[in-house]
C-alpha cells in the first residue's frame, strides 16, 4: 500500500531536504516531519518524509538479528536443529522436496 525508503538528510532548505540513500540523491519535503534534522534517517514516501527513523530501535532490531544468526550458527555446530520440514538445509540451499 505504500513503498517507502529510509534515506539520510544531508541538507535542509526551508521545507525541502536533500536526502540520500546508497548512490541516490533526491529532494523531499519535510513538512510532515518538521523536527527532522541533518543526519537523521527519514522514511520517504512519494516525495515526502513521513517519519524519522528511531536509530536505537533500528540498532536493537539489527542487534537481535545478529544474535539470532549467531544462535543459528552455534546450534548448527552442535547439530541440534528443530525440524523445518526440509525446506531449508543448513547452508540456505533448498532441499528438493
Amino acid at each position: 500500500m505504500c513503498l517507502a525508503l529510509p534515506m539520510r538528510i544531508t541538507m535542509i532548505d526551508g521545507q525541502l531536504a536533500t536526502i540520500v540513500a546508497d548512490g541516490l540523491e533526491q529532494r523531499a519535503s519535510i513538512v510532515l516531519v518538521p523536527d527532522a534534522d541533518i543526519g537523521d534517517y527519514v522514511l520517504v514516501h512519494a516525495g515526502y518524509a513521513i517519519s524519522v527513523i528511531d536509530e536505537d530501535e533500528a540498532n536493537e532490531t539489527y542487534g537481535l538479528l545478529a544474535e539470532l544468526a549467531e544462535a543459528a550458527a552455534w546450534e548448527d555446530s552442535r547439530g541440534r536443529r528443530p525440524e523445518t520440514g526440509g525446506r531449508l538445509d543448513r547452508d540456505g540451499t533448498q532441499e528438493d522436496a
Binding site: 539489527y62 544468526a69 543459528a72 523445518t84 520440514g85 531449508l88 540456505g92
Partner: peptide, 19 residues
Amino acid sequence: SVAASPAALRRLADDLFVE
C-alpha cells in the same frame, strides 16, 4: 536498512515452524 543474514532468517523460520 540492513537485511538480515540468511542464518538469522533461517533461525526465525525454524522458531516459527515450531511455535
